[in-house]
Design a binder for these strands. Structure first.
Lengths: 137, 137
DNA sequence: TATTGTCTTAAAGTATACTTTAAGGATTAA
DNA sequence: TTAATCCTTAAAGTATACTTTAAGACAATA
């Protein structure tokens, strides 16, 4: 199956302008063109977009994604380096999730706090409730 | 206990410039000054910084944090609105974590892929291994 | 055939969140 | 007392990741 830029935009949720931007930044391989010069996306292109989206949404910079894509283009001789990049990123994402979960505890504390404060109509009594400091003082 | 801006910077990991920026943007209440005009931070200020850091690191914009801080300053009449903000943000963070976990599966797939490819010395045989598309085609 | 809607490019513009610079004042160590 | 090191402000600069604009080409519809 082949897709126009508009279809890909709808499928992926990325604006056409972003899809063009990713291509000029070389986050995507060169996309084929039809006789009048319009982009024609394949299933493989969609798979690439999924990978890029995954890396981007997990916090990898455009610059690093570009580097990863460039390594892929070089073939088997970059396998080890790509593996290291993926493992490092995996670790980053795990840390990111752990950090968010820690912060979520703080937010849950606040949710309980406001639940109680709204019931009481005032937070005067509640200000003593303190969430343990995340800093070493 | 009282702290200089440099001490707070060390404790929180935020550069002094960022602490000043947060204050001018009104993410922090006005910080006390010593006789020569230098900032003097209290434990309460550190608690605020922890809240701001929590909101910021979980993806709340400076603009929205500012709004939340302003509501806090208005007192009990904004309790309900603050509660709604906290609950909405809690939901956002939960979604964010779920999304990261989903992406982590994709990254784990890639890690396995590169593990196998490095062992084989080539990815030729592995290109058939496809991670299920996250898009509805 | 004219209009509408899509596509193209390159370049300039925008949003967010800081960060740096410049110029000067106060405190401490030699 | 002089140099180093902190502090201050306001304003300009930076980085990242797009997004918009402008100008023009192509294809389908009224």
């Amino acid at each position: 199956m082949h897709y126009t830029i508009k279809e890909v935009s709808k499928i992926t949720g990325l604006p056409s302008s972003t899809l063009r931007y990713y291509e000029t930044e070389q986050l995507l391989p060169k996309i084929q063109r039809n006789p009048s010069g319009a982009r024609v996306y394949t299933e493989d292109d969609l798979e690439w977009i999924a990978v890029i989206t995954c890396l981007k949404d997990t916090g990898m910079s455009i610059k690093d994604i570009k580097k990863f894509v460039a390594l892929c283009a070089l073939g088997d001789c970059t396998l080890e380096e790509r593996k290291q990049m993926v493992l490092a990123h995996k670790k980053n994402v795990e840390l990111k999730i752990a950090k968010l979960q820690k912060h979520l505890e703080h937010i849950n504390f606040k949710a309980d706090y406001y639940e109680a404060a709204c019931k009481a109509g005032t937070e005067a009594e509640l200000k003593k409730r303190k969430y343990p400091s995340p800093f070493k003082l």
